[in-house]
Every structure is written in C-alpha cells, then in structure tokens.
Design a protein around this nucleic acid. Structure first.
Lengths: 235, 235
DNA sequence: ACAAAAGTGTTGTATTTACACCCATGA
DNA sequence: TCATGGGTGTAAATACAACACTTTTGT
C-alpha cells in the first residue's frame, strides 16, 4: 500500500513517516473500586517495568479500531466504552525509536474480564491509589485519562458499561465515587440523578446489599444516557 | 536516523509507519469577533477548497513544535497560546495518502497578524458564523477546537494572548462573548471576574469606548491567570 | 430490638440570573 | 440635555451541601 506516483512523492515524499501507537488506559471497575490494567514490559529497554497495554496502528485501521483491537486482545472484551485522550509526540519519549502514541482510555467490568489473559502475560490490576511508576510518559497518560473520564462522567451517565442491566442507585453512586475519587452524599446524589429523568425504576428489588432492599433502575431508553443533561458532578 | 539493529527490527520493523500532520485551527480575535484563518488548498485533490493550515511532523520535532513552526510560518507570530485538540486517524480521511493528523488550536490577535502572508497564499479570515465548508474532516476539527477553547476559557482567563497589556473589563467580556458565542451580562461578568482576584486595576482609564471612561486592568502577576480558579463561565 | 442501608425532608449557604439604577461625560 | 457605556446594588431563583429523620427487614 505504498503510494509512489509523482504527485505523492512531491507532496508527501519529502516528509518522514512515524510509527504510531495506541496505548490504552484500561479502567476496570468492580465493587466500588477503580483499577488499572498494567503489563510488565516483556523486552528491553525498560524490561519488567510496568506499562500500559498498547500496539501499533496498522495500515487500514483507524486509531479507534486499533484501540478496539488492543482492548479485545488484552481483556477479551469488545463493545467497550472508550475515548481518545490525547496524542503524545515528544521525539524522544521512547528511547529505542520514535513512536507517536495516541492514548485512549476504556472502561471495563472487572468481573467480565478474562482471567487467563492476566496470567498469560503477567498483567495485573492495580488500584489507582497504589500503582507503580510506569515507563515513558505513561504516568501522564493515566493522569490525563482520569481527568477526561471525570469530565465525561460529569456530563453524561457512564454507568451502562460498568453496571449490570439493572442496578441500584447505591451501585451507581459507588461507581461515581470511584471515578471521582471522593465520597458523595447518598441523599444528594440520589436526588440529583433522579432529577435528570434518564433512569426508570423497575419493580424488582435488590436484597443483597441491604436488609430493606433497594429498587433496581435502568436507563429509560438505550442511548439516552448520552443526551445533554448539564453537569452531574462538579469537577 | 533509522534504527536498524536486530532488536528494533523485531519490535518495530513489522509495523507500518505513517505520515503525521499537524493541522491548526487558528482563531484570530479582533474587536469582538472571532475569526478563523483558512487557506485555499494549492494542489489536487480538492484544489481551491478551503482548509486549515497544516504541515508534517518532522523527525526531531514534537507535534507541539510542529504546531509552533506552522503558526510561525502562517501568521508570522510566535509565543502563541495553543493547545492540542485531538488526533484524527481514519485511514481514508485524506484521499491521496494515509495521513494521521493532530489538530491544534491557537489564539492570535488579528491586529498583529502579518498582512503580507495573507496575500501571498490567498489566505482569508472567516467569521465563525459564515465560513465555507472545509476539506476532509477539517470541519470537525474546527468544532472540536472551539469546544476545547470554550472548556479552557471556562477554567482560566485566556485574555493575555488576545488583549493588550492593559484592557478594560468590557474588552475582556467581548472576548468571552466571542469565544462562547453568546452575550454575557455586563454587570454579572464584571463581578465574577473581579471576584477571582487575578486582575489588578491600573489608575489609567480608557476613553475611546465610552464617554465616562473605563479603568484599565492587567493581570496581577504574569502567569497567574493559569491558576485554579474554578468555573468562570458555565459551559 | 437493633443495626444498616434505603429513601425523604429540611435548612442554610453559595451561585446564578435578571434587572434596576446611579455615574460621568462627549456630543 | 441626553444617550451611552461604566459601575454598583438588589431580589428572586436555582443549585449545593450537610445532615436529620423515617422506613424496612435480616439477624
């Protein structure tokens, strides 16, 4: 798929081409905790140091598709909520070769994750609060990814990917507490969320988390969670 | 600067490399209006159609540096406020070759702009409200750039690049009205901005814009406009 | 009975919004 | 004097935060 005609060599030929990678900040949610999937780097330089899973953008795929491919390979999951974070393009950000990296973040459910993939590569879920130092500029990628996740979660309900079909408001609150890394008042959160009018109460109740039992809710319609609803949580 | 040892050919060699471009959404501000600098494309395909100024990322420069270089070349200015917007990486976004583009936006003062550069390339400043269709995905770049500018301007005062050293609160308000594309209440804006404590009133007055005259303000200290100040304008 | 989460209500504060209104002055 | 933007004040509405209190039920 090389383009070699005269026009192209005139317009593009004089310019260098670069490896373009996608690195994924994979947030795994389970039970009130947000964790981060890290891989020990399997080759020099920086062998053994922790890093984000990544891969190279191929010729006929978009960076979004590359991210989907990497997520599938590393977690076994597809249909994942995912957003581009930023491009990292310092010329010497990787020692061995120049690689321009596009950072993405993704949200997955820890309980749906394929355990075997963990062992195969020695990957580990780290809590955000006690994760190790990462190679290159991956620390910065994580920081920016979390900031973008918080921004996005502040404008739309991001629950559908991380919670079961039916969920209680407490479950949703714990998810938001994990994303925003702080406690949220149960009563105020409940009122705020319900006032948005995007949740529908089912007639079933959850009895596992409390004696009284809590109603299950679900989204009013598929997709409606992405409509304009103004700020949910102040950032 | 090719890396050809065995390790690299193993780790990187099998992967394709891509042209990486930087496209700049250059917002020019003057007199209450935000304009966009557009170039007629000088070669096929899409010759004559309007596009954002851009260029290719070279071997030893970061994408930020590439953006600075392009801004210098197209406007004659350096030391410009600038932010990365996003990467655009659909495989067929440009017809002739695969180019992954990193969009940036920048803010410049229209009155400092080098007029000669305009004529040389046939570039034109377009008002945001009546700009032509752009090639490729450049329309989307502009939309995302404006959204990011609004987000950033909502958290920090972006005036220092676009206003003179000394400016009146009305001038600052007009800038914010241009950025947010809506009118802002003069009294409320004044109180909000002053409450941030980052402006210092000078003892000089502007007499050109009103009969009464308005005090000039300036930033308390250089750089302070970037400190955390919470939301200025609700987005 | 009581602990613990679900769910509702209340209250004080801060912020936002929409104005009214006085001030200063050039034309 | 009067039109105009500069600048201040105020009142209603809304949003936010803290927390009391009531409900339900498994143990």
């Amino acid at each position: 798929m090389e383009s070699t005609n005269e026009f192209l060599s005139e317009m593009y030929g004089a310019h260098p081409r670069h490896y373009v990678a996608v690195d994924c900040v994979i947030f795994g949610y389970n039970n009130g905790e947000l964790k981060l999937l890290l891989y020990p780097r399997s080759f020099e330089p920086s062998k053994g140091n922790w890093s984000l899973p990544g891969g190279f953008v191929q010729n006929h795929e978009s960076s979004d598709q590359a991210a989907i491919r990497i997520l599938k390979k590393t977690t076994g999951l597809d249909n994942i909520f995912m957003e581009q974070v930023a491009a990292f393009a310092e010329p010497d950000r990787e020692k061995a070769a120049r690689v321009i990296s596009l950072a993405y973040y993704a949200l997955v459910r820890l309980d749906q994750y394929d355990e075997n993939l963990l062992k195969e590569y020695g990957a580990t879920w780290y809590s955000l609060t006690d994760m190790p130092d990462l190679i290159f500029d991956h620390n910065e990628m994580v920081a920016k990814a979390l900031a973008k996740l918080q921004y996005t979660a502040g404008y739309q309900l991001v629950g559908s990917e991380l919670l079961p079909e039916l969920f209680t408001l407490t479950q949703l609150r714990r998810l938001y507490e994990a994303i925003f890394q702080r406690e949220l008042d149960p009563g105020n959160f409940r009122k705020k969320i319900l006032s948005l009018g995007i949740l529908k109460r089912s007639n079933r109740k959850d009895s596992t988390e409390s004696k009284k039992g809590a109603y299950y809710y679900c989204y009013h319609q598929e997709g409606i969670q992405e409509k304009e609803i103004g700020r949910i949580i102040k950032v």
